[in-house]
Every structure is written in C-alpha cells, then in structure tokens.
Simulated scan of single mutants.
Amino acid sequence: MNERNGVEDLSHLGSEKTSYTFQYDPSLLETFENNHPNRDYFVKFNCPEFTTLCPKTGQPDFATLYISYIPDKKMVESKSLKLYLFSFRDHGGFHEDAINVIVNDLVELMDPRYLEVWGKFTPRGGISIDPYANYGRPGTKYEEMASTRLLYHDMYPETITNR
C-alpha cells in the first residue's frame, strides 16, 4: 500500500483542537494527493446534517447532500469538507445557490475530472427543493458525462418516506 503524499500539510485531520465556524469559509477545505490518478473512480460523500439559513427569513434549512467526484491529482480531505459544510450553518442562501457554491469551491480546490452535488432539502411550507449541479472538465469525456448525467439525473426519483 502506498503512503499518502502531502498528509503533513493537513491541519484539521487528527487535530484535538478543532474549532467550528458557522460563517461560510472555503479556506477550510484541504486536499491530499490521489495515489491512483491513472484510474477513474468515484468518491462519494453522504452528508445528512447540512444546514443553512433562508436569506429572507433566517429560518434554518436542513438537507442531506450527496457529493460525488472522480478525482484527478487532488482529493478533498473529509474532515476539512465537514468543517467547510458546517460553515454554511449561519450563512444565508437559497438552496440552489448553496449547491452551486459548493460545486464551484470544490472544482476550484481539486480540479476534478468530474463532480456532482445533489441537495435533498427537507420541506418547508409543504415543498422540498432538491437542487442538483455538476461539472465535467471542459474538452474531455467528463464534460459529455456531466451533460448526460444532468439530463438523466432524476429519471428514477426516490419514494419519499423520510420527509
């Protein structure tokens, strides 16, 4: 098994002095090197405790986020991702904006081959909102993949039993 390169630069992982910020802060995100850049594979994060605030009323909005990506050279470190997602806690933004901001920040951070984020927000006022955004590296097969997955991302919607 290969050693992880770049782990000495990770400041959150293993720290006993973790501090949580609830103001949006993309600088919390950290990366490490992908030891298998010669292979396409998915990494998926299920984040069932995402919280942000309605920009108009200040009421909390809750969601499960599904973040999937095909890494290239860099990968996002999971504890830094958790702290970054916590930083949305007191941030006011519409659901659709939050999902697109997360996509933008992760693309800027890692330059992945492919990335998608799907937010499944709990209902407020009798309506749930489930924004989906993705990215495929321009000029590659991943750009076509992103286009196809966007068109068909919700062909088989789940049976709603948990909201």
Rank of each mutant, 00 (worst) to 15 (best):
K120Y: 11
T140E: 06
S27L: 01
K56Y: 12
M155R: 11
Y142T: 10
G126W: 12
E108T: 13
P157S: 06
E143H: 03
D90G: 10
P157I: 15
G92M: 04
G139Y: 06
R4K: 15
L29V: 03
T52W: 06
L151M: 06
N100T: 14
K17P: 04
F94I: 10
Y135W: 01
S19F: 09
S87A: 11
N46C: 02
N46D: 08
M110K: 07
D61L: 10
S147Q: 15
S27F: 00
K73N: 15
S27V: 01
E108V: 09
A146S: 08
Y142K: 07
I67R: 06
E96G: 10
L28S: 02
F62H: 04
N134S: 14
H91E: 13
H153E: 12
V7M: 14
A133M: 03
E30R: 08
D9L: 05
P37K: 04
N5E: 07
D40A: 11
D9C: 07
Q59W: 10
F42A: 09
V7Q: 14
K74Y: 04
F62N: 03
E116R: 07
A146D: 01
L10H: 13
Y66W: 13
K17L: 08
V101R: 12
N100C: 08
I129N: 03
Y20R: 15
R113L: 05
R113F: 06
T31V: 14
E16S: 10
E77F: 00
L85N: 13
L85D: 05
M110N: 00
L151V: 09
P37W: 01
D40S: 15
W118F: 08
P48M: 03
G126T: 10
I129S: 04
L115D: 02
C47T: 15
M1G: 15
L85R: 01
Y41A: 01
D9Q: 12
A146F: 02
L28H: 01
E116C: 05
Y69S: 02
F86R: 15
T140D: 06
F42C: 09
T57C: 00
D40H: 11
P138F: 09
F32S: 04
F94G: 13
R124C: 10
L150C: 03
D9W: 09
G139I: 12
N134C: 15
E3Y: 05
G92Q: 07
Y142Q: 11
N2V: 15
Y156M: 03
Y84P: 14
C47G: 05
K56L: 09
P112N: 02
M145P: 00
Q23E: 12
P60I: 08
M155F: 03
T140Y: 05
Y152Q: 07
G126D: 11
V107I: 05
Y152K: 08
D25N: 11
Y152T: 11
K79L: 12
T51L: 00
P123V: 08
P37M: 02
N134A: 12
M155D: 05
Y114R: 03
L150E: 05
H153R: 15
